[in-house]
């Protein structure tokens, strides 16, 4: 088990670095799909099959398709130019160091007396057995009932994105020469 986890973590790290380094957009998109797939695999090991399933479908599936179609729409992918990036690297290292500093007081991985595991008491699993009349999957119970309004919110986000994409991509029927307002609104 441990070996698998190590292998997965190493693969995840390698994939992420590869994505950062690669300059060919097509390859980057493929590696992003692989990254999502690897994350989904690790999620299975971390006892979250529902999330793994969704990540595999949405992350590795839908978003890869979306990116590929965007690439198709935006035409022949130009190779991404290489440029030195000291400032981003600095910001990232500082942020990462802050996060590592934050982990020092964290409950250890898998610790059964972590606050997350002991609170609330009775736990969601115990509560849902009484509340949900024998629904086996506690994640479903939480998603649909206890935190149903988050799910409504999530649906609203999808609705928003749908309307937004329509708004953005729909052609203005009275598409006049774009240069006129441009010239007028030109900033200094």
């Amino acid at each position: 088990m441990n070996l698998i986890v190590f292998a997965l973590l190493a693969l995840l790290a390698i994939t992420a670095v590869a994505i950062a380094q690669l300059r060919e957009l097509w390859a980057v998109i493929m590696f992003t799909g692989i990254y999502s797939f690897l994350s989904a695999s690790w999620m299975i090991i971390l006892d979250a099959p529902d999330v793994a399933f969704t990540e595999a479908a949405v992350g590795a599936g839908i978003s890869t398709v979306l990116m590929l179609s965007t690439m198709a729409l935006t035409g022949k992918a130009e190779d991404i130019p290489r440029k030195s990036s000291v400032v981003p690297l600095f910001v990232v290292i500082v942020t990462g160091a802050t996060l590592v500093y934050g982990t020092l007081d964290m409950p250890h991985f898998g610790s059964p007396d972590a606050p997350v595991q002991v609170y609330p008491d009775p736990s969601f699993v115990e509560r849902s057995e009484a509340d949900m009349h024998g629904l086996p999957n506690v994640v479903t119970a939480l998603l649909a009932s206890y935190r149903g309004y988050d799910t409504l919110g999530e649906t609203t986000v999808v609705l928003t994105a749908g309307i937004a994409v329509l708004l953005i991509l729909r052609k203005n029927e009275d598409e006049q020469d774009d240069t006129a307002p441009l010239a007028r609104n030109k900033s200094s």
Partner: peptide, 12 residues
């Protein structure tokens, strides 16, 4: 059982 709440949050 592992905690189901993080799974739910992440689905969202």
């Amino acid at each position: 059982y592992s905690n189901p709440l993080p799974s739910v949050l992440m689905l969202t």
